[in-house]
Write a protein that binds this DNA or RNA. Structure first.
Lengths: 188, 188
DNA sequence: CTGATAACGTGACATGCTGTATCGTAATCG
DNA sequence: CGATTACGATACAGCATGTCACGTTATCAG
């Protein structure tokens, strides 16, 4: 895939472009994001950005994928399902709040309805989180501790509450909130 | 406020602009929405749109406010709290799915982080729904039927699940789902 | 009927971003 | 060294922006 002949790509440029994109996305939003601004902030010429990313959607998708790749979630296993879910969702909340990543997700929600790259990005990221949760909540369900009729409904309730605060209500998104919602979905 | 002298504004123009804005918003998204396109679709000159709306954000906010004004939600009171909540949330879901309104909300999530008019719009619309729900869920709480520790947490769980499917997961948003989530938050 | 007032359409304008192309230069390989 | 590729600089047409000036049209007060 990568050419073995000719001048190699300047190392770090991809990372610089991705960082500039994520920063600007949080600053000015998707609609206000300009490829020209990305080029300037990443210290690169405008054609160079176009050489690597055909469209704004692809640029943003690549930047977010790169950001996502730095996180490797682990499924906690303390023996207590309730604590495990709390920790897993705590990680999710931390990932969404301790950086501009949460803001980036919010900016992507609208464009994802029209741009396949962004739609796919959301889908795989969500499905990955859903898989981890399904494993944990499956145990709770077998112990009859799930208030929801279905594991997937429970996931919608939990992730829904978190993303609701992130995207719409803007209310505080912290561990206390995670504890609250987990305890109302899983019986102690 | 409104001038009593001079040529009156053409009646229906505001409505035409609002309709064109909502339509285009669902079609091409907020980033792709163009004031020029709104002018063309509503059969009005471009300066006319600018005379009524200073910015794209204000235009969209006005259009969505006009759409919101057509709905007047009532709090059901059947005696059964569970049924009441189901009906209220059923109305919410219907409002989000039977027209392009749900898509419009999704398009607004990102821009609302930067545009005060859109932020305010989301806030008042949400607070209104929250008020209705608080009333109903308060009854359930007094009967000890709430799985959540707090009425507001229960609201985050319910609305969160709905908006999660609308904005992110894209899974089916229907009465069956409403029944599911209500029954897992309110004990029968 | 007349004059004041305001809405409207047309056309124009400078500005900024887009996406693409051309060119010269630089870096790496066989 | 020669082929190949990355890169920056520059230029370009296209399009939307936001604003302006102008002429026309509709309405009201007198």
């Amino acid at each position: 895939m990568t050419a073995t002949v000719g001048r190699p790509r300047r190392p770090g440029t991809d990372a610089a472009i991705a960082a500039a994109t994520i920063d600007l996305l949080a600053d000015v939003g998707y609609a206000g994001l300009t490829i020209e601004a990305v080029a300037i902030r990443s210290g690169v010429s405008r054609p160079t950005v176009y050489r690597r990313h055909a469209t704004k959607a692809e640029l943003v998708a690549a930047a977010m994928t790169a950001t996502l790749a730095t996180a490797n979630p682990v499924v906690p296993d303390t023996g207590d399902v309730l604590v495990d879910v709390e920790r897993l969702l705590g990680n999710t909340v931390a990932a969404l709040t301790t950086s501009t990543f949460g803001a980036s997700v919010a900016e992507i929600v609208g464009p994802a309805r029209h741009e396949p790259e962004l739609r796919d990005l959301l889908d795989v990221a969500l499905e990955e989180r859903r898989g981890l949760l399904r494993e944990l909540l499956g145990r709770a369900e077998r112990h009859g501790r799930l208030s929801a009729s279905d594991v997937d409904v429970a996931i919608d309730l939990l992730l829904g509450a978190i993303y609701f605060r992130l995207l719409i209500s803007g209310a505080s998104l912290d561990d206390a909130f995670v504890t609250d919602i987990v305890r109302s979905v899983i019986a102690p």
